[in-house]
Computed example of a mutant assay.
Amino acid sequence: MYNKQFFSCPYYRNQAAYPFFNAQWRANAQKFAAVSGTVTRIEDFNLGQDGASAGCYKLMSLESKDVGPVNFVISTETYFVDHKVVDVGDEVTGFYDANAPAILIYPPQYPAIVIAKDTEYEKVAVDYFDNQLISSDGNLKLNIAPSTEIILTNDQPFNRYPGNRNLIVVYGPTTKSIPAQTTPYKIIVLC
């Protein structure tokens, strides 16, 4: 009647003893995933029948070489890097919360957090960077220069140290070290 192979105690857990249950740790360790591709369609996306949000949300369809077709829901909170307007035919990268629940449909559909128009000379990373400005996967280290612009999503200056935060990083060349190091052109702090 009962499966005694696996022990579980769903009722009580001392959260202080298990940091992976700590809500603050989870908030800081948000994981971002990215999909790059060509924009094939942009259309209005209606959330309700009341009409109050009509035109405020868009559905952006991408054709990715890696994962096939993907849809992004663009909201008023979606940040477009450098505030660039995206059109059908543009190469873009969309970033979304990898820990958020997703509806099981084909093609997959994600709420976009950041959209970056791909360029030849700039790369964009969206990730949590620790107090030494190393990304959560350990593949990128940021070296801040006096010329590095550090701003908020509303383009206002950010006057604190950007470590231990979720960041949008616009950068160019990197070293071939592990982790790769770069001096970013711009850092946008996601507060």
Rank of each mutant, 00 (worst) to 15 (best):
V39F: 07
N46S: 12
D50H: 11
D82T: 01
L190D: 03
P179A: 06
R160M: 10
G172K: 15
Y121D: 15
N131V: 11
F21T: 09
G37S: 06
I113D: 01
A23Q: 11
K186L: 04
V35T: 09
F20G: 00
F7L: 12
L152P: 01
A112R: 01
E122Y: 12
V170E: 12
I105P: 00
Y96W: 05
N166S: 15
Y128E: 05
Q49I: 11
Y161E: 11
S135R: 08
Q156S: 14
Y12I: 03
V85D: 09
Q24K: 13
G138Q: 08
G55Y: 05
Y110S: 05
Q109E: 10
Q30M: 14
M1S: 13
Q5A: 12
V81I: 07
N3I: 08
A102V: 11
T182R: 03
G138M: 09
T148R: 04
K84A: 14
M1V: 10
K84F: 06
V189F: 04
P108R: 13
V88E: 14
Q49C: 06
V170R: 06
V92S: 06
L167H: 04
P107F: 07
D50T: 13
P111Q: 09
G172H: 12
Y2V: 12
K31M: 12
I115Q: 00
A102L: 09
P101Q: 11
V169S: 02
Y2D: 12
N28D: 10
I74E: 01
T183H: 00
V73H: 00
P107H: 08
V73Y: 03
S136Y: 07
A145C: 04
V35M: 03
R13V: 11
Y106R: 07
T78G: 03
K31L: 13
V92Q: 07
W25N: 13
I178D: 03
N154T: 08
N46R: 14
D82N: 15
V88N: 07
C56R: 14
S75F: 00
I178C: 02
Q132A: 13
C56V: 09
N159K: 13
T76D: 05
N143L: 14
T175H: 00
H83P: 00
G89R: 08
H83N: 15
Y57Q: 01
V114Y: 01
A100Q: 14
H83V: 03
M60R: 05
V169Q: 02
N164V: 10
V124Q: 02
Y106K: 08
S75V: 05
L47E: 05
N46H: 11
S53W: 05
F158H: 12
L167G: 05
N159P: 01
E120K: 13
P101F: 11
A17M: 05
E120R: 10
C56P: 03
T174K: 06
Q30E: 12
L167D: 04
F95P: 04
N14H: 06
S136H: 09
I178R: 04
